[in-house]
Design a protein around this nucleic acid. Structure first.
Length: 782
DNA sequence: CAGTGAGCGAGCTTCCGCTTGACTT
């Protein structure tokens, strides 16, 4: 047994550190937090000063047992978890759970994983910072109190199994409010005028495009302007040249990596994290959950050498970046390649792509600025002198913009992409021009454009916004996105968009011509859109808990956590101050508020005059005919997929009550069409067959219904690979993940290398017996 | 997996932040 035990959070980190320390040291990992508040109840004893009830979870019992054993045999235990609030708490929980004593335990931190840094850390140990631990306890307890008191209010007042929390509820609010902005946005048309001039460059003919900076509000104004330009003359009146510089972006943090991987590679936030984890575990990049843009001296040196060797001294510029993110805790470095001299790695295509992105961003961040020259040319419009009518210049002037790259600098490697979807046209090099030069007009165009509503968030831009607000942490960005979708507060949507007409008015050879063109508008891909539930829960929470829903709530409590960390505040007193008024609101809301269904009256049923509502029910959005207070029981129907409370019409709602529909008979059994929990279906002899995407349950007929049944039967026949006469329960089937064995209600995997067709009944039973021996996996729902 | 929804009441759901497996029907 080694004399020293070092404990860090992550096994990959443990492996690296072990290499730097001698044989006197064993390095083990805690796998993150080892204890948490009991999940069963509130986990906090409010009466006893909010005393937390910490429990070692089942999946951590083995880790703790193992660490306990190692600690027992060690002379000194070095707690080397991260330097931030959570890291300090992990060390403290380890100290408590492993029942360490102070003489035996040392707390160390290092800022980079190098031999010198680690040896330095060992030389300068400290003790656990209990103030910092208390700040974490306050954070943890506050989140638990908010989450576990607010969620049950939703269960009672809105719908069961909903959830609310400091982070997720605000994330949903952002998406709901963006949708409202879009809904309230008035799309107004305007006209943009551009001109194309002919340039004769020593006999070589080229074109110059120029724009009118001012826009016209109406077609009449645009036409009037073009009319004014009939027979006009165009003269270069001003040429302005200005130098400009571009700076590289700082190295990646978790949030910026997620954003760039989304823009440049089309990765979802979770995919980025999965691949980054693989790169980290194989030692190719530094830690991927970080909010720091800092590079270690080692990395800076490697980058410098890489740049000078490959591009020369001119391309190198030392830079130190400062983190600007709110609430950043900077326990790690920025995300960078472990070995910057490795431009390429082996691995999967996705790993290579993400690594390459990280490599470029890291190296570019230490490169020189790009230098450009921006040119702005002003072109006057004037009537020809011989018309005698008007020789004055118009007040409108055309402007042509150009850009010349004088020195590429970091652009040689990398340019950060923008979020905006329709970016401005890139301006290129302008032809040589002189003041006073006359430019012959090829044509002029006034094109109808439209003001753009705000753009919906996608996963990555939501992360960006949350980070700006200081909400969530690098380790939670990806889980937040999945939580709000799992709770069905928001969905990720693709929409094809619609066609829109726009007017084009052209002036060419002194004649004006009008035409109408078509363009696509409103198409979205991977955008986050709120559901009815999301909208209603958000409305309810803002009405009753505006303080928690405040975008600055996290920032405010973070300030107090900082006070606790500095020893200026006592953690449970801070919690008490918060909890008093908060809990009162909870009680008050439960007592006084009505059930919150977001009910909306759509109209009356024509035959009976009964009210038709759309509202949130126990199972989601539904339509109701008749009042709940009336003697007669109201009738209910769930909304179909794609229908929303926002947009449903009275007729749509009434249509939902036309089910079940009898559409005919087949093989002596009735064919009924209805809409269930999983969408529209045909029911036949107690079996259910889902309707196709393009089938309308309102109009589907007998022929099509039979077709659907036969299609499904065919598929089922193909599903069966093998059955056994002796034991009908045992089947070899073809499933979504390939062949498998089904026995009664249980399913078993077929071992690799086994041909499913060749399996005998004995083989199947043997595989099943093997499978049953393995501990049953805790089955997660959904 | 598939006809739910009022009301009664049992018993269930839920938070955020730190980490990696085990293994799918």
């Amino acid at each position: 047994m080694a004399k020293n035990l070092v404990i860090v959070e992550s096994p990959a980190k443990a492996k690296t550190i072990e290499r730097f320390l001698g044989s006197d040291f064993t390095v083990k990992s805690s796998f993150g937090h080892v204890r948490d508040l009991s999940k069963k109840q509130l986990g906090v004893d409010i009466e006893k000063g909010f005393k937390p009830n910490y429990i070692v979870s089942d999946d951590k019992k083995k880790v703790i047992a193992d660490l306990k054993k190692s600690a027992k045999g060690a002379e000194t235990v070095w707690l080397a978890t991260d330097e931030d609030r959570e890291g300090e708490a992990i060390s403290w929980h380890l100290f408590e759970t492993l029942k360490l004593n102070e003489e035996q335990t040392k707390r160390i931190v290092f800022h980079e994983i190098t031999k010198t840094a680690i040896q330095e850390a060992i030389k300068t140990p400290r003790s656990i910072d209990l103030n910092l631990v208390d700040a974490q306890q306050a954070r943890r307890v506050l989140d638990r109190l908010v989450g576990f008191e607010l969620s049950p209010v939703l269960w009672r007042k809105v719908k069961p199994a909903l959830s609310a929390g400091r982070v997720q509820s605000v994330a949903v609010r952002l998406i709901v409010e963006r949708e409202e902005e879009i809904k309230n946005f008035k799309i107004t048309p305007f006209y943009r005028v551009s001109a194309l001039f002919e340039i004769n460059e020593n006999g070589k003919i080229t074109e110059l495009k120029a724009e009118l900076p001012s826009r016209f509000k109406s077609k009449e104004q645009a036409v009037a302007f073009l009319n004014k330009c009939i027979g006009a003359e165009y003269t270069v009146s001003k040429i302005e040249k200005k130098p400009a510089e571009k700076k590289p972006a700082p190295p990646f943090t978790t949030s910026t990596l997620q954003q760039e991987a989304s823009r440049k590679l089309g990765f979802s936030v979770s995919k980025t994290m999965l691949i980054a984890q693989q790169l980290y575990e194989s030692g190719k990049i530094t830690y991927m959950r970080t909010d720091s843009v800092n590079l270690s001296n080692l990395a800076l040196g490697m980058a410098k050498k890489e740049i000078i060797d490959n591009f020369g001294e001119d391309y190198y510029q030392f830079r130190q970046y400062k983190t600007s993110a709110k609430g950043a805790q900077e326990a790690h470095e920025a995300i960078r390649p472990t070995y910057i001299d490795k431009q390429e790695i082996s691995g999967t295509a996705d790993q290579k792509k993400l690594y390459n992105l990280i490599w470029k961003r890291t190296v570019a961040s230490q490169m020189s600025n790009a230098r450009l020259e921006k040119t702005t040319v002003t072109i006057d419009i004037s009537k020809k002198a011989n018309t005698l009518i008007d020789i004055s210049k118009t007040k409108e002037k055309f402007v042509a913009k150009g850009e010349v790259l004088l020195f590429d600098g970091f652009l040689k490697l990398y340019l950060e992409s923008l979020d905006d979807e329709d970016q401005e046209e890139k301006s290129g090099v302008l032809p040589p021009l002189t003041i006073g030069q006359k430019l012959p007009l090829i044509k002029m165009e006034a094109v109808e454009r439209f003001t753009q509503p705000p753009i919906r968030y996608n996963e990555a831009t939501l992360v960006k916004k949350l980070e700006e607000l200081g909400i969530g942490r690098p380790s939670t960005y990806a889980p937040i996105i999945s939580t709000i979708q799992k709770r069905e507060y928001v969905t990720k949507e693709d929409r094809p968009g619609q066609e829109r007409n726009y007017q084009v008015i052209e002036l060419k050879n002194d004649a004006i011509k009008e035409s109408v063109k078509k363009e696509k508008t409103g198409q979205i891909k991977g955008k986050l859109v709120p559901t009815d539930i999301g909208i209603i829960v958000n409305r309810f929470l803002i009405q009753h808990f505006d303080n928690i829903m405040d975008y600055n709530f996290t920032a405010k409590v973070e300030k107090e956590f900082d006070e606790i960390a500095m020893g200026r505040k006592v953690w449970n007193e801070m919690i008490r101050e918060f909890y008093g008024p908060f809990h009162e609101r909870v009680e008050n809301t439960i007592k006084t508020s009505e059930k919150f269904s977001g009910a909306k009256l759509l109209g009356q049923e024509p035959e009976t005059g009964k009210n038709v509502f759309v509202k949130i029910g126990r199972f989601g959005p539904m339509v109701q005919i008749g009042d709940t207070e009336s003697e007669e029981k109201p009738r209910f129907a769930a909304l179909k997929k794609g229908q929303t409370m926002e947009s449903i019409t009275l007729q749509d709602a009434l249509d939902l009550f036309k089910f079940p529909r009898n559409v005919g008979t087949y093989e002596g059994g009735e064919l009924t069409v209805a809409i269930g929990r999983f969408g529209p279906y045909v029911r036949h002899q107690n079996k259910f067959y889902s309707l196709g995407k393009n089938d309308d349950p309102l109009t589907i007929d007998e022929t099509r219904a039979i077709e659907i049944i036969e299609e499904k039967r065919k598929k089922d026949r193909e599903k069966i690979i093998k059955t056994f006469e002796e034991n009908k329960e045992v089947q070899v089937l073809n499933g979504r993940w390939g062949p498998y064995i089904s026995i009664g209600k249980k399913n078993y995997k077929i071992p690799k290398g086994t041909e499913p067709k060749s399996l005998t009944l004995e083989d199947c039973l043997k595989i099943a017996a093997e499978g049953d021996k393995k501990p049953a996996k805790s089955r997660r729902r959904k």
